[in-house]
Write a protein that binds this DNA or RNA. Structure first.
Length: 705
DNA sequence: CTAGGGTTAG
């Protein structure tokens, strides 16, 4: 590095000095106490005034947390001068707008086309063309015009720069900045790194625009560590970042999930007197939102109020999304209503966010309300919003509304249904057991519109057909998937095949599905064969099961296990202890956590989210654990309860009905609870006697009772 | 693109 640039601020490298003087394990912000802003701050902008809320919030808690009682928050000590981590004035663009009259264009209107048409490798031709076009040196405006025009041709931008250098043209920072931007567009990180380093060592001096361009380029090229390196280098190069550069690096921290670093930087900026703008707040909002950090988002809201900043639509969008993701639909709704009231018009992304939330949290009423206001106020619409609304309809079971919107899309000219739209509609129909409608969309309409279905379309349909027992159609749909999307076939689809298998009526159907599974997943096929084979022991099953599960995504593991248990429970031909073995394995791999609860007054098992076979295995398992507790002389509660859930529709009532039958067939002393719908209870004495009668409990019950 | 930074979908 050029020693002449050795700066007084070289010790101030934010990411290496990112040692906080307050405990980072605690949130840096206090819990928001009230939502009112401090009126005393409204008409002041002196640094001490601006620091006040910060110092209050930071210093107050620190000693209380113990571990840092003796540390000095250097940044906030008003007796020392504060280091400038951020320049409070934005870098001024030296060049106003050019007068739009580059000589070159007047002299030679085809010059640009000529330059573009020259092969990148023909440096000689490129240079001689330029030399011919500019017998005297080009003006700054000429160069700017050319560089801007060569934005999409980064190699030629560099050649132009080289030519200028050779022509002893006075090169200014702005020219390099434009070349860097051009390189960023095509993500050529190494070139960018090289040119920017060259600037550092040989000039022209990089400025904030240079650094922000380099940082955002590193971001775009996924070279996040480089982004941080370059940011740190600014201080040693004597360039104090302004708020644009700040936002750029905060964004990088956000992507890396470096919340603490972002907070430290933000705070230091604030301590310097920075008043963050909307972009900074939207970056931080996204950061906290992704981290599910509600307090962070609330603190931001508070900061904006303190600074008298009304969030713009982007900031609102990040917050609404963030609170939705953090499981706070009410706060999201509040923000949405607040922005409407303040006259900040919601855009497509706002509405996408809010409908997604209303769908997820089953807010049908709120959704319909926004839908009506949308039409009334002619709020904007786009494809993603349409598809999100359809997804919401699917979640809320609003079939006829979805059909109406689907038709509306077909009529529209700019939001025609795409494959996402179809996938949502297929899912919606499948959830409502309308496999014929789904079939028609998948096999007729999509091909007509030249849309390629993805695997999820097939998976939905196969699942639905399987539940309807239409095994031949399952096979047909699977064959079609094998033909069109063979590489996409995944565990989720296999799981649906497996669940179909558990419902097969006869051996012929079983074999048909088994043949599909063999093509889709040889590993699953071999596990099924092993389960069938009586001579295969637990350890071998375990090994194969583990192999299957470890390769499957987490969300499919439990369904896999459920389906396997169902198959072994309800299909003839499997050894009788397979369901329990599989349930045991599922427990080993943490698939069935939290089913059992023990309170002093009651022990219970929650079977509500299990498949029929898995529920039965879990129930048997629970009853055995009660027997074991008796044998271990544990203290027992007076009452035992089984949660089965209750359902009004056929689908949801399957499990309670099945378990009720199972309990009564076994003569178990559980009866429907009157106080708590969806559960069965038994008294201790009745249960123990019955367990004894079943041979599950071997000790003499009368002694205990 | 007009020298730099921000938010949406199973």
């Amino acid at each position: 590095m050029n020693p002449s640039m050795a700066p007084p601020l070289s010790t101030l490298s934010p990411s290496t000095m990112a040692v906080s003087h307050f405990p980072l394990s605690k949130p840096f912000y206090p819990k928001p106490t009230s939502s009112t802003s401090s009126p005393s701050l409204q008409c002041h902008s002196s640094i001490s005034e601006q620091l006040r809320p910060l110092s209050l919030s930071l210093l107050k808690d620190t000693p209380a947390h113990g571990e840092s009682a003796h540390s000095k928050p250097t940044w906030l000590n008003p007796t020392k001068s504060k280091p400038n981590v951020i320049s409070l004035v934005r870098h001024r663009k030296t060049k106003p707008t050019s007068n739009g009259n580059p000589q070159s264009l007047l002299l030679n209107p085809t010059l640009l086309q000529t330059l573009v048409s020259i092969p990148d490798s023909d440096k000689y031709l490129f240079f001689s063309t330029l030399t011919e076009a500019f017998p005297s040196p080009p003006s700054d405006d000429d160069v700017l015009f050319l560089l801007n025009s060569l934005y999409r041709h980064p190699k030629k931008s560099i050649l132009l720069l080289e030519w200028l250098k050779e022509s002893s043209f006075q090169l200014e920072t702005i020219f390099y900045n434009l070349v860097l931007k051009s390189l960023r567009n095509t993500r050529q990180w190494d070139q960018i790194d090289r040119i920017a380093s060259d600037m550092l060592h040989h000039g022209p001096q990089p400025d904030n625009i240079t650094f922000s361009t380099v940082i955002s380029a590193a971001h775009k090229c996924q070279r996040f560590e480089k982004a941080i390196e370059w940011f740190d280098m600014m201080y040693s190069a004597g360039v104090i970042p302004d708020e644009v550069t700040f936002s750029a690096i905060l964004k990088v921290y956000a992507i890396l999930g470096k919340k603490e670093e972002a907070i430290i930087l933000y705070e230091r900026g604030r301590a310097t007197g920075w008043k963050p703008d909307h972009v900074a707040f939207s970056v931080l909002g996204k950061l906290f939102g992704d981290a599910g950090d509600q307090d962070g988002m609330l603190y931001m809201r508070d900061e904006m109020k303190r600074l008298n900043i009304v969030p713009n639509v982007v900031v609102y969008n990040t917050l609404i999304n963030g609170f939705g993701r953090a499981g706070r639909p009410n706060i999201a709704k509040e923000l949405f209503e607040e922005m409407c009231k303040l006259g900040v018009n919601p855009d497509e992304r706002t509405l996408t966010a809010i409908f997604k939330i209303y769908g997820k949290y089953k807010r049908t009423h709120d959704a319909m309300d926004v839908w009506a206001r949308m039409k009334e106020n002619r709020w904007p619409m786009d494809q993603i919003l349409y598809n999100t609304i359809l997804t919401m309809c699917a979640d809320l079971g609003m079939e006829s509304e979805a059909e109406k919107i689907f038709e509306e899309m077909k009529q529209s000219y700019k939001c025609l249904p795409d494959k996402w739209t179809y996938s949502v509609m297929i899912k919606l129909y499948c959830r409502r057991s309308k496999s014929d409608c789904a079939w028609k969309l998948l096999f007729e309409e999509m091909p007509q519109r030249n849309l390629q279905p993805d695997v999820t379309c097939y998976t939905s349909l196969i699942d639905c057909l399987g539940k309807e027992g239409r095994v031949d159609d399952v096979v047909a749909a699977f064959e079609s998937a094998m033909e069109t999307v063979p590489s996409q076939i995944d565990d989720q689809l296999c799981c649906c095949l497996l669940s179909t298998m558990a419902r097969c009526k006869d051996e012929m159907q079983m074999n048909a599905i088994l043949a599909c599974i063999e093509k889709a997943s040889p590993m699953l096929h071999s596990l099924i064969c092993m389960l069938w084979n009586e001579s295969i022991g637990f350890d071998e099953i375990k090994k194969s099961f583990r192999e299957l599960l470890s390769k499957a995504p987490i969300n499919v593991r439990r369904p896999y296990c459920n389906c396997l248990i169902d198959m072994c429970t309800f299909r003839p031909g499997f050894p009788s202890d397979r369901p329990r073995e599989l349930f045991h394995l599922g427990n080993i791999y943490g698939l069935y956590q939290g089913l059992q609860t023990q309170r002093l007054s009651e022990w219970s098992v929650d079977l509500r989210r299990l498949s029929l076979g898995a529920a039965r295995a879990a129930l048997d398992d629970w009853l055995e654990s009660v027997a074991e507790a008796v044998e271990d002389s544990e203290r027992l509660p007076p009452q035992f309860r089984i949660f089965t859930g209750y359902g009004l529709d056929r689908f949801k009532s399957a499990l309670p009905n099945y378990l009720e039958g199972y309990l009564s067939d076994a003569g178990a002393p559980f009866h429907k609870s009157e106080k708590m719908a969806g559960s069965f209870v038994a008294e201790k004495a009745d249960l123990l006697q019955w367990l004894h009668g079943q041979g599950i409990l071997t000790v003499d019950v009368s002694e205990i009772l």
